[in-house]
Write a protein that binds this DNA or RNA. Structure first.
Length: 662
DNA sequence: GCACTTTATGTTTTT
DNA sequence: CATAAAGTGC
């Protein structure tokens, strides 16, 4: 761990004369450069930690970096050091500068499904695909810093104009709700910095040195935020790898990497090419694969770790058999190498591919951790509770109001809410505000009105209690007040109800702990949750096989990696055959390969169930691109009968299993 | 008008 | 399999 730094690494850490771009190949120690540079700034340059900001793309990466810096500077005070995602930093700026932008600091952060519902409502469309396209169009406009007016002017077709109009009313709706979406967390600070130089300078003075991880994944708007924060001093280190750009679909623009030398002529570029992670074979196939892409910056990764095991390619008849084969092979490999489960990762393109692997692992009683997939905070029971919390913080949050008032059911149904909504629309106020107005009382029969007023009373009571009590007490009171546990048991099977209740307890415990430990208010906690997808608890110590999407695996490394579902239509994905996107799929495969330290196993199925139909699959073109000299094939038609190697593997596994059961 | 039950339906990747 | 729309009792 404490290996000496190589010369380019050391240069990257010590270089402080201006903007710096570190082109860091996979496994070349880029996280180490960032963490050691933070330590260097604090230790050797006596920079106060509160003036340093390291920006990552995922919460996981931020947490890991925090941990590593903590270890590196054990005992030192790190108060005020910022290590967060772009979005979390944006939220922090926004919270502090809300009033300057016409927002309350208690703004709500809408999740993707809230936004989907709003777009659906505004366009009056029932076509899910069309709504999603419109939603992503709006997101693209925002990320490119194009205003609704500009979008309208640029509209070419009627469809464009329709979407641009939807964009305008979408923006107005969010403002009325005192709510922002994920994109706004970056866009609004950028707008603010653009319009009010004094605010920009305040933040430039606060965050004096910036370190940006995964720079290749920034979009236009994130780059603008970066430029705003860096200012003319341009004291920053951007670390990135054009071969690992895999977020183009989210608006990330590799052009930001190309533009950096133009925008900052004094930019220093340092390339890290020595890989400390993988064996020679793994790097050879990775290099062979990525050579098929148009290169932005030339680099050739090399490793001093020796040649390593051959890379295996396994064909299976179906996706279920693939899962069984991979799990069996994993088990055999683990026994042979006396490894631990945590050394193994199974990586795939889409979350839906996890299912058969989960099943196979459960069958074999192998512990596993599933990362990605349905986010913890996307579970219905958590979102129910969160709706109440959002509403307490921000009564204008109509999506939260709608969810809270109908969970649990309290005699207020769709038609009452429609009347309330219409009234609120006429009065230009939120649902919550409308419900207490005199004018509204005459619109409904007394029975229904009473139910609504009872709800308003509940919200006010909880608001009062949130003002003077810690988060955990408010949660307890809230759950008791709405009888959530009883309601769960009424409408769900016992097991399901218990599982959901347990989730809620976990959630409350986590919230309470975070509130106490970090002294965060209910408001900050609620806003923070919108930006995270998992309860970030310590998973590092759990000995379990990791299951992850390729996207979620970026930045991680594993001794042994199984890359599964390598079929045309899956990787590369069916809808991404256009050339720009095919290269991104190739980079995704590249990211998967370069996660592996010691061994790499590829696999694909010959048939896969899609919906109700079985469709034949072709092996991914990317397998052929790896070259055959480092691959060893098994399975498929030519190897229907187990060969000696796999027979002896099975025997070894059986023996080991018997030994383990004593 | 409201709430609960049945039935169709569908999957890229994340903050 | 889990969610979301349509249908049925109260």
């Amino acid at each position: 761990m404490a290996a000496a730094l190589n010369p380019p690494q050391r240069a990257a850490i010590r270089y402080l004369d201006g903007p710096l771009l570190v082109l860091a190949g996979a496994g070349s120690g880029k996280t180490r450069v960032i963490t050691e540079k933070i330590a260097y700034l604090i230790d050797c340059c006596a920079l106060d930690p509160c003036h340093i900001a390291a920006i990552t793309f995922t919460n996981k990466a931020a947490r890991e970096m925090q941990e590593r810096v903590g270890k590196l500077l054990a005992g030192k005070r790190l108060n005020g050091l910022t290590i967060s995602t772009f979005h979390a930093l944006g939220a922090r700026i926004l919270r502090e500068e809300a009033t300057a932008l016409g927002y309350k600091p208690s703004f709500s952060i809408l999740d993707a499904s809230d936004c989907f519902a709003i777009v659906a409502e505004l366009t009056g469309s029932t076509d899910k695909g069309a709504i999603r396209r419109c939603q992503s169009q709006i997101s693209n406009w925002k990320n490119a810093l194009i205003s609704p007016d500009q979008a309208r002017q640029q509209a070419q077709t009627d469809g464009d104009l329709l979407a641009a109009n939807a964009y305008a009313s979408y923006a107005a709706t969010l403002r009325a709700y005192q709510a922002v979406d994920f994109d706004d967390l970056i866009v609004l600070p950028v707008t603010l910095f653009d319009q009010q130089p004094a605010r920009r300078e305040k933040w430039q003075n606060r965050l004096r040195y910036l370190l940006i991880d995964e720079y290749q994944d920034t979009n236009t708007c994130q780059y603008a935020l970066l430029q705003g924060l860096a200012g003319p001093r341009a004291a920053f280190t951007a670390v990135g790898d054009d071969d690992q750009a895999i977020y183009g679909w989210r608006g990330a623009d590799i052009d930001n990497l190309r533009r950096l030398p133009d925008d900052y002529p004094q930019l220093k570029v340092i390339t890290l090419e020595q890989n400390y992670r993988s064996t020679g074979r793994i790097l050879q196939v990775a290099n062979a694969l990525i050579a098929n892409n148009e290169k932005l910056f030339e680099k050739q990764l090399w490793s001093a770790l020796g040649h390593g095991e051959p890379i295996t390619v396994t064909a299976s008849k179906t996706s279920e058999l693939e899962a069984a084969a991979v799990v069996m092979k994993l088990q055999a490999h683990r026994f042979e190498h006396r490894g631990e489960f945590r050394d193994y990762a199974i990586l795939y393109r889409g979350n839906f591919q996890a299912r058969p692997f989960e099943q196979a692992l459960r069958d074999q009683r192998i512990p596993y951790l599933l990362s990605g997939g349905q986010s913890f905070f996307d579970k219905a029971e958590i979102k129910d509770l969160l709706a109440y919390l959002r509403l307490l913080a921000n009564p204008d949050d109509d999506p939260a109001y709608l969810r809270a008032i109908s969970t649990p059911k309290r005699g207020v149904g769709a038609s009452s809410l429609q009347i309330l909504g219409a009234y609120a629309g006429r009065r230009h106020c939120s649902l919550f505000a409308a419900a207490s107005e005199q004018g509204f009382a005459s619109q409904l029969p007394p029975r229904l009105l009473e139910a609504i007023e009872k709800f308003s009373g509940l919200v006010r009571r909880l608001q009062a209690s949130a003002a003077r009590q810690p988060a955990s007490a408010v949660l307890t009171e809230l759950l008791a007040a709405i009888d959530y546990e009883d309601w769960l048991h009424q409408r769900e099977e016992r097991r399901a109800a218990q599982a959901k209740w347990a989730n809620l307890q976990d959630f409350c415990a986590w919230l309470g702990k975070k509130g106490d430990d970090e002294g965060k208010s209910l408001l900050e906690l609620t806003q923070g949750i919108a930006l995270s997808s998992t309860l970030d608890k310590n998973e590092a110590d759990i000995d379990a096989v990791r299951l992850s999407t390729l996207h979620a695996a970026k930045g991680l490394e594993f001794k042994h990696v199984f890359l599964v579902g390598l079929e045309e239509g899956i990787l590369p994905h069916r809808e991404s055959q256009a050339d720009g996107r095919l290269e991104e799929e190739r980079r995704l495969m590249y990211v998967g390969i370069t996660r592996a330290q010691r061994s790499l196993h590829l696999s694909y199925a010959e048939r896969r169930q899609q919906g109700r139909e079985w469709l034949p699959c072709q092996p991914s073109r990317f397998i052929a691109e790896l070259g055959s000299e480092n691959l060893r094939f098994s399975g498929g038609k030519q190897a229907a009968v187990p060969d000696k190697a796999s027979a002896s593997q099975r025997l070894a596994m059986l023996k080991a299993m018997l030994a383990e059961k004593r």
